[in-house]
Amino acid sequence: MARMEGSARLRKISALLDDSRSTQEIVYAVRDEYGLAHTVFHLGQTAVGRLDRPFVRTTYPESWVSRYLLMSYVDIDPVAVEGFQRQLPFDWRDLKVSDKAAALMREAAEHAIGLSGFSVPVIDRLARRSLFSVTSMMDGDAWSAFLAGNADELVEIASRLHHCGLREAVGDEASLPPLRPREIECLMWTARGKDYQDIAQILGLSGHTVRSYLKSARYKLNCSSLPQAVARAFQVKLIADE
């Protein structure tokens, strides 16, 4: 269970995501909690195409943001270009860098954007996409070690930021799919004090499958922890006291 709860800093960010309506506040908090150089949240596409005005929240210095917009760098920035093509999280070392992009990267370095980066593409059920990127002054093995320890949490944060950003950008409150009977059942047993192994035995499933149902339930309820998901399920009357 400890694993699902994540680190103290993830819990702190999650609590912020529960309460805050400001995507800007979250991107700053993630940068500070994880000791990163910068963070960027970019809501890039809707189901039909790009948003009329791209929704970007970032800790990048104003000078770099202006330059980036002025030069339409979003069309050649390999992070944005490949990020909205890809589905899996990626280390910027995996990017194909064209000559034009290399010039952009050198210019970014002058603005102290960072030496390394990692991006997480997110898609939702309406096929809207966002991209959450972080940069660091670490590189080489230190950066690899950082990612080995933190990539999973950044993926979790990115998926919740997607909904936070959508809420702020287009006022969307209903982009998460409804819970299914099995997920509700697993939450109900959790509410009655059963752990996933007990539930697995009761339902005749493997412990891994029960954990998958609970993870999915937690994600659909937009909650950072299982106890919180149970509380939310009571609140919205998905489950009730016996």
Binding site: Q87, I123, V155, P181, Y213, K215, S216
Partner: peptide, 30 residues
């Protein structure tokens, strides 16, 4: 073919349509 369950996926759609009680998993690591 590999797709994230946060987005639209074939099996979720098929099983949701076929079985009202069916699964519809949704999580960044599934």
């Amino acid at each position: 073919r590999l797709m994230p369950t946060m987005g639209p996926t074939l099996l979720n759609d098929v099983f949701r349509a076929t079985y009202p009680d069916g699964m519809d998993l949704c999580h960044p690591r599934i």
